[in-house]
Design a protein around this nucleic acid. Structure first.
Lengths: 204, 204
DNA sequence: ATGTAAATTGACCAGGTGGTCAAATTAATA
DNA sequence: TATTAATTTGACCACCTGGTCAATTTACAT
């Protein structure tokens, strides 16, 4: 068993928590192992005993973040499997907002990973995410096409791309607005409606 | 006159060129003044004589990059003022691709600025960009609405947001695909058509 | 050619980085 | 309790950072 797994769950939590804070506040290169160590209240040697390198620690954390994101997505997809396209889209937006609100630090790590350039293995990870998203949104679009809710001659790849672009951008802006305290910048419901209307029309 | 302005234009070009390389390859924190100095073939003291801090040098460079971007945008907007919406949109995509192809390093600095988190004054700059884009795309949407090409009851802010999201994301992906050598990832014409079709329909 | 002013240099500084490892502490075994 | 094994520690290392400044080189005026 890996040394980190042997630790008391309280200590594990402390370390994970400190790491999440650090990697969400600074990008990979700028994030500091010393800072993690101080926040977690352990010694430097210990941290490097649990995680041999900064890279490995980062991998541990981002997988954690991504796992949570995937959970959310899987959840909303399955729970809305029988809903029509527009309601489904609306729920996706809602759950995205919910995730961001409940896990702002994990969301930050996610956005940093997707939009910033210097995480290790960034290309591989982003490719993974891309194909995950294609899969996810692709299924939803396909379902809607099968039901006759969307134009059956759609270029699916492009449609998914548009969806992904708008959804991600919206959530990113929402996340940033949230972190800057300007709560009124986005009216959730209004924007949710706007997005679903725009896509049901654009892809019809 | 500032010391940098007194330099021979050849030397100025060398320094600007080295700085563009550095800031396009690494993000602000990671970019190294030592590296700029070596690439430019001047001494460290000189560089800090021309630009008192890293921050000031970065500002000089990003303003340069942004100026070029604005030039391109202004150009295409004015030259297509009388075109219908779909042709206009198509030209915007084309000119974006052209810019990226001709100035890949400046494009990289632009994307890094917009999507990454650690440039100095990032918030201020991004706000500036946002209102610039709102202005730019807002005008184009407004023109089309006035001409009766788009639904006159559109929520303009949202429409502009969608346009901005998709255009930026597309150009970013195109830029990344280009830099990774995979030229066939995007068929320019096909995607240009797809984008215009999607928006003319979605906003009609 | 000489003196002076301006431009250029690079050794140097304090401070930070990821990572190491002998030594000290704690836990487990007998 | 005495011995051994596992865990934890933090001083330390080489390296890099942005930035400084006395000293040297260059340019120019007389």
């Amino acid at each position: 068993m890996k040394p980190f797994g042997k630790l008391s769950s309280e200590k594990q939590a402390r370390i994970v928590n400190a790491s999440i804070s650090e990697f969400s506040e600074k990008d990979y290169e700028t994030a500091s192992m010393n800072s993690v160590v101080n926040q977690a209240g352990i010694s430097k040697g210990s941290l490097f005993n649990y995680f041999k390198t900064k890279n490995i620690l980062y991998n541990h954390i981002y997988k954690l973040a991504l796992g949570e994101v995937k959970n959310y997505l899987r959840n909303v997809r399955d729970k809305t499997a029988d809903f029509p396209f527009d309601e489904r889209l609306s729920k996706i937006v809602d759950s995205g907002i919910k995730f961001i609100t409940e896990h702002p630090r994990l969301a930050r790590i996610y956005f940093r990973l997707v939009y910033s350039g210097d995480s290790p293995n960034r290309d591989k990870i982003v490719n993974e995410l891309q194909s995950m998203s294609e899969d996810y949104l692709g299924n939803i679009v396909q379902d809607a096409m099968n039901r006759g809710e969307l134009n059956p001659n759609l270029d699916k790849a492009q449609s998914v791309f548009f969806l992904d672009a708008v959804l991600n951008r919206f959530l990113k802006e929402y996340h940033e607005a949230m972190n800057h305290g300007s709560q009124n910048a986005f009216n959730k419901d209004e924007w949710g409606k706007g997005i679903t209307k725009f896509f049901t029309k654009g892809l019809s």
